[in-house]
């Protein structure tokens, strides 16, 4: 499973470790914590597998590998998918 970015342009404003993110394609304003924003930033270069994305997010957060709670990571990626900011796609490299 790959996580793929969907929004081609986002406008960011950070205050007090809270991120206000404007999504022009949906005319929507979101409020994200640092973890959620770092997930989006990790995806700016293209799709990543869940595992790689989680590890890159942990590195960006400055925590050791597997320190980011699985529930928190899953909640954040699911929320981003609901908002139309990412999508889950099959990984072609693992196709039979």
């Amino acid at each position: 499973m790959l996580v793929s970015p969907l929004a081609d342009r986002l406008i960011w404003q950070e205050w007090d470790d809270i991120y206000i993110v404007y999504q022009p394609a949906a005319a929507a304003t979101h409020v994200f914590n640092e973890t959620t924003v770092l997930i989006l930033k990790c995806l700016q270069q293209g799709p990543l597998s869940m595992e790689v994305l989680r590890h890159q997010t942990e590195a960006a957060l400055g925590v050791s590998q597997d320190e980011l709670a699985a529930n928190d990571f899953e909640f954040a990626t699911t929320r981003l998918e609901e908002l139309g900011l990412v999508e889950f796609v099959d990984d072609p490299s693992t196709a039979q």
């Binding site: 406008i11 404003q13 205050w15 007090d16 809270i18 206000i20 404007y22 022009p24 005319a27 304003t29 409020v31």
Partner: peptide
Amino acid sequence: PKSQAFLSVATNAFNYEVLDEIAFRLVT
């Protein structure tokens, strides 16, 4: 906190949704 101020101003606006990105930039 500024993040809280942003949310309070944006949710208090009559036409934030109507003006879209212009409103986001102005409130920011």
